[in-house]
Design a protein around this nucleic acid. Sequence first.
DNA 1: TCTTTATTTCTAAAATTCTAGAAATACCGT
DNA 2: ACGGTATTTCTAGAATTTTAGAAATAAAGA
Lengths: 109, 109
Amino acid sequence: MKLDDAAARLEALGNPTRLKIYRTLVRAGREGSPVGRLQERLDVAASTLSHHLKTLIGVGLVTQTREGTTLICHANYEIMRGLLEYMVEECCAEGTCSPAGIIKLPKVA
Amino acid sequence: MKLDDAAARLEALGNPTRLKIYRTLVRAGREGSPVGRLQERLDVAASTLSHHLKTLIGVGLVTQTREGTTLICHANYEIMRGLLEYMVEECCAEGTCSPAGIIKLPKVA
DNA sequence: TCTTTATTTCTAAAATTCTAGAAATACCGT
DNA sequence: ACGGTATTTCTAGAATTTTAGAAATAAAGA
């Protein structure tokens, strides 16, 4: 991942509302969550939510699938994985900032 | 770490110039880097750099120590560790987005 | 086709961020 | 105390972001 892509994704997550959205989608699990349910949960105007979702979708952190009239949102774990990988590799000292319970191994699949 | 703190730190890192600053400081290692050297490396106006550093310092990601007339900047790994921990715990599905080479263990110190 | 529900796009105002020149401050050596 | 180097603070303009109401679009069902 390039620095500019990482920055764009960090910026997308760096807004409390968008971070809440993303976290909610992670908790929604594999089935995801309709936009409408997100709106109820987060208590934000529909247009505002849509705007934030657009940002998250734009950087690849969220995807949408349509099911009839409702749009289901999903967290994209692959992108998040890449972002965490970038941060650990580019922004951490060897072993110094591995989160507790997380260990960096030499070479594991 | 609270959601708002995590968001503030992600936002701080979510600007290409600031992400470059932070990455440079990580690469500078334990001894850190003077503001002036950062300025040469990143080719940015002194006042602009100072402004971005203020942001990073404000969220705890960077610290400064004075050595005579020069200020030395250091990456704060403890805060970064906490941020990564937050992201893994709050924004990842179990095992789904562990970066390659990183494994989440049940309970390790 | 008309209605309803779900969501986005358009629009615009308020707030914030980014940038960098100029002035101010901090510290050291003489 | 003075001069020089390092860095910050002040200031302000340009650009971007955030917010949400209103209008538009998409899909399903009667």
